[in-house]
Design a protein around this nucleic acid. Structure first.
Length: 411
RNA sequence: GGAGAGGUACCAAAGUGGCCAAAUGGAGCGGACUGUAAAUCCGUUGCGUAAGCUUCGAAGGUUCGAAUCCUUCUCUCUCCA
């Protein structure tokens, strides 16, 4: 077979972008073949991402896969966003901390809308490049015989290979039988959707590979699986997640996004650039080189990272503002200019109660502790007496700890 | 269906009649330090300005006194069938 140099150049270009940052591409040759075919025929590849409509706020961790999808879109391919409304209505069993709440149809749709709203900060909303699908369309139509047929394709031993099942099994944590159906359902989605590619975090590898297995059984060309590394959270150890509290939220305030970015350990800087920003492969190389050669100060690299992230979600003006805020409050230890104002009744007040009222402390006990530990400043003066009676004045500045401020305003 | 083990604070895990608002670790919060909201070190961590109040799966009971003993219920795990 003769190779067309123009086509091959395009294949190489796409492959570089599409495989960037990926943990695994299974198998790479198939992806290359699919890309080549797509270029020759002019037919877009369909790329699936399945999501649970839990309605939660997205973190930068979620955006890692979204970024990858965006790159596919940029190469002219089409994203199939699969809303797991069927699985969502049953309730996500992996999250045992919350009672399994059954989501209603309306809740699922509302949550899906929340997801889309956030996801489109990363994805291209061009209808030619994205399609939203719901798995209840085919899953709810299956009867028990269909389910048994599907279940016969898998064994318990293989299911227990899956990491989180294995851990829970070994850790004496309950596994409900129907949870075994989840990977099957997810795999079946790929059959129903006839996907070319499916993207998921490395934790999804098992499920996503199930799609390949079932597609083969069905006589389809199996999808290529691309797994993306799980983004390590702010603590530098655990994966970024809501429950670990080590996350940066997509919808968070610019100041928080920026500040949190500044708190990541140095060794994660390059990883963050690679996985959650749009810097080019070349720029990424520059940054890595700079950090290694110590010509680029990690602090400056982080500041650039923070600015890049905030710009992406809030725009450049907000990013600059957040940077200034950070410099003022944390680098120079000054009081920022924009402090949220709170209206207070005039007249003498017990400081502890005031802190609680302003939500600078969750309870009186915590507020008292904060004061005793020297964490309270009023108009830049330390107040260490928990019995202190304060006479509020307009413009009075209360600082609780290093980074919580409130400005008083008399009613 | 049978036998056994277990459910402790945000999480993990000690405690097995009073000294337990409950060790310890993690997380959180405050302080010091720092380029940093990192690392490290120190302090602190139910609610209540106090008297006191509520906490150890749930409900009852024994006792002057229970996280600890008894009964029932409930959930989880392990082994056997």
């Amino acid at each position: 077979m003769k190779k067309d140099p123009a086509v091959e150049a395009e294949v190489a270009r796409q492959m570089e972008v599409l495989t960037r940052g990926a943990a695994e591409v299974i198998p790479v040759e198939d992806l290359e073949a699919k890309v080549r075919k797509s270029i020759k025929t002019g037919k877009q590849l369909t790329v699936k991402l399945g999501i649970d409509p839990t309605g939660s706020d997205l973190t930068l961790g979620h955006t890692v896969v979204l970024q990858k999808l965006r790159q596919f879109q940029n190469m002219g391919h089409k994203v199939q966003l699969l809303i797991g409304d069927f699985t969502g209505m049953i309730g996500d069993p992996t999250d045992r901390t919350e009672a399994r709440k059954q989501l209603t149809r309306e809740e699922v749709l509302a949550n899906a809308a929340t997801f889309k709203e956030q996801a489109f900060k990363v994805l291209d909303a061009d209808p030619a490049k994205i399609e939203v699908m719901y798995n209840s369309d085919w899953l709810s139509a299956m009867n028990f015989a269909d389910v048994l047929e599907l279940a016969s394709k898998m064994t318990v031993a293989r299911m227990l290979e899956r990491d989180d099942f294995k851990k829970r099994y070994e850790g004496n944590l309950p596994i409900s039988l129907h949870e075994f159906m989840y990977p099957l359902m997810q795999g079946y989605d790929s059959v129903a959707m006839k996907c070319d590619v499916e993207i998921g975090g490395t934790d999804q590898k098992f499920n996503v590979l199930m799609g390949r297995t079932l597609q083969k059984e069905d006589g389809q060309e199996p999808q290529v699986v691309i797994t993306m590394p799980l983004l390590v959270g702010l603590d530098g150890v655990k994966k970024m997640g809501k429950s670990a509290g080590n996350y940066i939220g997509v919808t968070e305030e610019p100041n928080d996004q920026y500040g949190k970015t500044m708190s990541i350990p140095d060794h994660l800087i390059a990883t963050y650039f690679e996985l959650v920003t749009d810097v080019t492969v070349e720029e990424l190389g520059e940054i890595k080189k700079g950090l290694e050669a110590q010509t680029l100060h990690p602090r400056d690299a982080k500041m650039l990272l923070g600015r890049t992230i905030v710009t992406k979600y809030h725009g450049e003006a907000a990013a600059l503002e957040a940077e200034n805020y950070f410099k003022t409050v944390f680098q120079n230890r000054e009081i920022p200019e924009d402090i949220p104002e709170y209206e207070v009744e005039p007249g003498e007040k017990w400081v502890v109660a005031l802190l609680t009222e302003l939500k600078l402390a969750p309870s009186n006990g915590e507020a008292r502790r904060l004061i005793q530990q020297g964490g309270l400043k009023i108009n830049s003066e330390k107040v260490e007496d928990p019995q202190f009676q304060l006479v509020p004045a307009d413009g009075m500045i209360i600082q609780a700890g290093k980074r919580k401020f409130a400005k008083l305003k008399l009613k």
